[in-house]
């Protein structure tokens, strides 16, 4: 039977396609994200199984703790170490799905609240560093493409050196200069604004060097493209050419790299939080790795994976916002 064509279902036909396509894309994204999380959880679970020795021993403070067989058995039963590996795996997945990250061996508290508690500080650090890196990179790229050959040379050298700076050395050097010699900023990160300056700088400068290289390169390409010549032929000023046309094009590759950059900032936070004695995910992770506190490591890894995935989705959305061509295909 043929459905009569009414205005209503014609409208539905007209609208349905883009809406369905958008929903389909969202669904695919969500499925992809869940898959990645599942895989991350599985890899960490089985990787941790590879650790030699009895996990119950690890709970009780490692081989040096001389735990009694009874205590070991009790811990095994409590944590499910006596179950078959596959059962443990399913239990673990089930717990993760309900947001239960388990209990820390060393800190005697639940991992979920512990990790969430530390997340805020690290996120603040990463977001501030990412923003500062963008500002520095933009400034460096625009300046070095405008000021002639010398500026170009200086700009590109600065970027290469900045991108090669290891966080730990930059942090110590900044502490020596600003805390010890000049004495204007605290060497230990406090909650105050002054305490944030050095950690954020440490994270931002290498990233800025890297983003700056990419921006300068794409800015140069954009400035030489025919549409910029067209704009100039219309009487557009140098500033207009940059702000209306070129910078938008130049920012595209840097935007799509920001998801990756965010991930690298979180890994940089391991170093920075340790040096500046700042509470956060990175320091928690390092301590947990040193103490072999498996549940905490898994918890941090999961949280970072979630943050990373969300950030990639966000940069994707921003890319589509800035580059309408992406919305078409």
């Amino acid at each position: 039977m043929v459905e009569p064509v009414t205005p209503a279902n014609r409208r539905r036909d007209g609208l349905a396609r883009p809406v369905f396509r958008a929903l389909g894309r969202l669904g695919a994204r969500l499925a992809g994200a869940i898959f990645v999380l599942w895989a991350v959880a599985s890899i960490t679970f089985f990787a941790v199984r590879l650790i030699p020795g009895d996990p119950a021993q690890a709970v009780l403070g490692g081989p040096g703790s001389q735990a009694s067989p009874e205590a070991l058995a009790a811990v095994s039963a409590e944590y499910g170490f006596d179950q078959p590996v596959f059962t443990q795996y399913l239990t673990q997945l089930g717990r993760l799905a309900t947001g239960d990250l388990g209990r820390s061996y060393s800190l005697n508290m639940d991992v979920g609240p512990l990790v969430l508690d530390q997340l805020g500080g690290t996120l603040l650090l990463a977001v501030l560093a990412l923003s500062l890196a963008w500002v520095i990179a933009l400034a460096l790229a625009t300046w070095s493409t405008r000021g002639g050959l010398v500026a170009a040379r200086v700009g590109s050298s600065l970027e290469i050196v900045a991108a090669a700076l290891p966080h730990f050395w930059l942090a110590t050097s900044l502490i020596v200069v600003f805390s010890i010699w000049i004495g204007v900023l605290p060497p230990i990160s406090t909650d105050s604004l002054a305490g944030l300056v050095l950690p954020v700088l440490t994270l931002a400068v290498p990233l800025a060097g890297f983003l700056g290289q990419i921006m300068r390169e794409s800015l140069l390409i954009a400035l030489e493209s025919p549409f910029v010549l067209s704009a100039r032929a219309r009487g557009e000023s140098e500033r207009g050419v940059r702000w209306v046309h070129a910078l938008r094009h130049a920012s595209l590759p840097a935007i799509s790299l920001s998801g990756w950059a965010f991930g690298s900032l979180i890994s940089g936070a391991v170093v920075v939080e340790t040096i500046f004695a700042r509470p956060g995910l990175g320091r928690t992770l390092l301590n947990a790795v040193t103490l072999r506190d498996v549940p905490v490591v898994i918890g941090v890894v999961m949280i970072v994976a979630v943050a990373y995935i969300l950030m990639t989705l966000l940069t994707d959305a921003v890319s589509r916002l800035v580059d309408p061509r992406l919305r078409l295909s």
Binding site: P226, F227, L229, S230, A233, R234, H245, H249, P324, R325
Partner: peptide, 15 residues
């Protein structure tokens, strides 16, 4: 006024 070859790249593709 100036008209260039191939407007795909002679008009800003983002605008």
């Amino acid at each position: 006024g100036l008209v260039l070859q191939d407007a795909l790249v002679s008009l800003d593709p983002l605008r």
